[in-house]
Amino acid sequence: MNISPDATIFWQWGPVSLNATIVFTWLVMGLLVLLSWLITRNLSVESGLTRRQMMLETIVSAIRKQIREITGRDPDDYLPFLGTLFLFISLSNFLAIVPGYQPPTGSLTTTSALAVCVFFAVPAFGIAKDGVGRYLRHYIRPSVFMLPFHVIGELSRTLALAVRLFGNVMSGTLIAGLLLSVAPLFLPVLMQALGLLIGQIQAYIFAILATVYIASASRAREGGAPKAGGQPTEGG
């Protein structure tokens, strides 16, 4: 039994390998883009809203609301990045109910890739707002001795992000596989349902933590005490 979809390789040429992680990521990407394109093809402003548009608007509004509550700013700057993060993880985990599908988020490579994206996104958003100098200055606050701790904090939380998501999704798949060999009826269904729930919660947690990191970095630069969310407590 393969724990990680990375191990399922469809095609390889030297270091270039086309494994299940990449293939299922493409599948999720394709689905997301296709659905978005289908729904946003005919958007209506006034009356005559379709149910699909309503659903999409509800999801996007909820994401915007969350971002606004945490960052306290206009959410539209962060929306594409954080929204994509949530939707990708959410759909990846949701499709776990399809037989034969292996969630790409169950691969440490994928979660690491996402964590790396967040790792770079935090300073990218900060610098985009205030410039390099002001952003970098917060690493030496309140004292220059804090610099190593800041750097360690950044790295550790990126690692934590990656491992948390991977661990949860992987464990869900693993438990389902184990239970299937022990008690093939009923119990795996329940665990599958639980796995769905956990998958959605993880998507939420990942996106929220990414938002909090971006927001807290910005707040630190502004010199104010963090309000909602504060320094994130990490758990899992």
Binding site: I22, M29, L32, A113
Partner: peptide
């Protein structure tokens, strides 16, 4: 995966 994600962000 990083590239995939960036492409997905842009597409979405």
């Amino acid at each position: 995966q990083i590239v995939n994600f960036i492409i997905l962000v842009l597409l979405l």
